[in-house]
Amino acid sequence: MTDILILTHVDFCPPGHLATVLDREQRDFTVLRTDLGELDGYDLDRPKAVAIMGGPMSVNDPLPWIGAEVDALKHFIARDVPLIGHCLGGQLLARALDAPVHRMPYTEVGWQPLEKRALATDNPWMAHLPREFSIFQWHGDTFDLPEGAQWLMDSPWCPNQGFSWGDRVLALQGHPEMTEELVRVWLTDWAHLLDETQPSQQGIARMLDDLPRKVRALNQVAEGFYRRWLDLAF
């Protein structure tokens, strides 16, 4: 076991660029598939930093491991462990903080423009970001804001794009961890789930256009989040 724990829920939602950052920083980390029961028996008092990745399931699905993961997140929150949630991971954090997670009437997909909220300008999680930036999105659920949370950013199709709770919890609705390879895989393997007639979804050609530049910009967004997450832990 290591001091950094990454929780995943399906093989096509890996740590992505987060793993690249940790490798570059020469920090060992443990990846567990909670949907496969790999969290069972894990020492919840061990990790100093925890990241929760995405997945196609809903927090509201009747899957036994979801409740177990939420309970683990509550334990980490009580321990004051730095936590960062990506998409489903952000929704799981919202649930662990007793906030509702619900279905949207559409699916938000693509390089969506986000805006940093004026009251979040001084939040240290957001210090590296300009007023407007983009994060890759693919989700049909969204979270409400937990009591005591600070609302950090919004987008035209999903107002609750991120919140911080205390100084050590960051929940994100989008996917800052994406790499070029992951974007291409998702748009190949899951193209049948897309509907370009929905204004909340970008077309595949538009998502792939100038992809290296878009991913480089996304990496900078992600690395600001990851630097703070690591600084809080170590």
Rank of each mutant, 00 (worst) to 15 (best):
R95H: 10
A171W: 10
P159Y: 04
L119Y: 02
H86S: 14
F136R: 01
R95M: 02
H86C: 15
W157F: 15
T121V: 15
R117V: 07
N123S: 09
A120Q: 00
C87R: 03
G162D: 04
M178G: 09
P100M: 01
M104H: 10
A120P: 00
P100D: 13
G90F: 03
W165Y: 15
W138A: 12
P113D: 13
P113E: 12
R168T: 05
A99W: 14
W151H: 15
M178N: 11
E147G: 13
A96T: 07
S155C: 14
P124L: 00
A127L: 08
W165M: 06
W111K: 07
Y106V: 03
T179C: 07
E132R: 15
Q161Y: 05
W138E: 10
S155F: 06
L145F: 12
P146V: 05
M153T: 12
S134T: 14
R103F: 06
L114W: 13
E147H: 12
M126F: 08
G148S: 10
F143Q: 11
G166D: 09
Q173I: 09
Q91K: 12
L129V: 02
D141M: 04
H139N: 13
A120G: 01
Q91D: 07
V109C: 12
C158L: 02
I135V: 13
K116E: 01
L152D: 11
N123I: 03
M126N: 06
S164F: 05
S134Y: 12
F133C: 05
H102P: 06
G140D: 07
D144L: 10
E132K: 14
Q137P: 11
M126L: 12
T107V: 14
E115I: 06
L129Y: 01
D141A: 03
W138M: 07
P130L: 05
W151Q: 13
T107E: 07
L172Q: 04
V101D: 14
F136H: 09
P130M: 03
R168I: 08
G148M: 05
L114V: 01
H128W: 00
Q137W: 01
D141H: 01
W125Q: 09
E108G: 11
L129E: 02
G174F: 05
V101F: 10
A118Y: 00
Q91I: 07
T179L: 00
L170N: 02
F133D: 06
G110V: 03
W151I: 11
R168C: 09
S134H: 15
T179D: 03
R117A: 05
L92P: 01
Q137T: 06
H128I: 02
R168N: 13
G166L: 09
P176Q: 04
W165E: 12
H102M: 13
W165T: 09
L88V: 10
C158N: 09
L172V: 03
D144I: 07
P156E: 14
E180A: 13
S164H: 04
G85M: 00
E177W: 06
L145C: 13
G140C: 08
S155E: 08
D141I: 06
D154Y: 11
K116D: 02
V101E: 13
A127Q: 12
D98C: 07
T179Y: 04
Q173M: 08
R103G: 07
L83D: 11
Q173C: 10
L172G: 05
D144N: 14
Q161H: 07
I135N: 04
G110I: 01
L152W: 05
F136E: 05
L145E: 13
A127M: 11
E132I: 00
D144W: 09
L88E: 04
Y106T: 06
R95F: 01
L92N: 03
C158R: 00
A99M: 14
